[in-house]
């Protein structure tokens, strides 16, 4: 192995197998390993030569969903322990956010935005990035007024205040899209009071820890996600030993 003495090879192989949680597997054949273990062996083979940079190209695409989540945590943990600069290519946006310090979103061969997961999710520079990273509502509207970075937009039959990434490029009357994440929309029974918008629930899907809603609001369809705190949620007041009641959403 790269002109490394045999004794050192044995030592390094032992170290790297321990690092990926496969100590004692030296004598196993590939067919005796699970999918996750085979992936760890591939990782061990890459890091045993002590590279300065690691490139992962869709490393988890062949694994089932549960194992993918487990392996991405292991890869992230290992990368931090080894402190190796790592380039990780994936089409899975959640995976990208889970393993990265910085993300570059590419479209047609060009980087269209680069930044932290929070930057990309909360401050997308384009509709492409907004739609590519997570779920989003893109609500059609027209600029009513611009004051610095603050923009007032006529949309959904009312005016809505928002931030603009490039407010100086906008003028009253310009067609725009409001970017609203599904979890940033609150809903309550009834409707229309206190300046809130009125909508109708057209679909409700219970997904365990969250409930997804599709709403019809002033001719637009809005995706809404509300998280259910569940029966084990902490009581709102510290001195209260038991929650008396909990309203279901």
């Amino acid at each position: 192995m790269r002109k490394v003495p045999a004794a050192e090879v044995r030592q390094r192989v032992g170290e790297v197998l321990a690092l990926v949680g496969l100590a004692g597997y030296e004598g196993q054949f590939s067919g005796q390993l699970s999918g996750g273990e085979q992936q760890r062996v591939a990782l061990a083979r890459a890091i045993v030569i002590r590279p300065r940079v690691l490139l992962f190209d869709e490393p988890l695409s062949n694994l089932d969903a549960k194992l993918r989540v487990q392996m991405r945590h292991e890869i992230r943990d290992l990368q931090r322990r080894l402190a190796i600069t790592t380039v990780y290519v994936t089409h899975d946006q959640e995976e990208a956010m889970a393993v990265s310090d910085r993300i570059a979103v590419m479209n047609e061969g060009s980087v269209v935005q680069e930044g932290s997961a929070e930057d990309l999710y909360h401050r997308p520079a384009s509709q492409f990035v907004a739609q590519f990273v997570g779920r989003v509502n893109l609500v059609a509207g027209r600029v009513a007024a611009v004051a610095g970075d603050a923009v007032t937009v006529a949309a959904l039959g009312t005016t809505i205040g928002a931030r603009a990434v490039r407010a100086r490029d906008l003028a009253p009357g310009d067609p725009v899209r409001l970017v609203v994440r599904p979890e940033s929309i609150a809903i309550a029974a009834g409707g229309g009071a206190d300046g809130s918008l009125q909508a109708t629930v057209i679909a409700r899907t219970f997904l365990g820890e969250k409930i997804e809603y599709l709403l019809r609001c002033a001719g637009e369809t809005l995706q809404v996600v509300r998280y259910d705190a569940g029966p084990g949620a902490p009581c709102p007041k510290a001195r209260t030993s038991r929650c008396a009641s909990r309203k279901m959403p």
Binding site: M106, V151, V165, V176, L178, L197, T200, R204, L222
Partner: peptide
Amino acid sequence: MPEGSNVAVRFAEDAVTVLPEVAAEGTSDA
């Protein structure tokens, strides 16, 4: 909130971003 019911909708403060309208945008290419 059951299907068919009327609801009041509010956007969280500082959670709305404005982007210019574009005619068409491409597809992903990692």
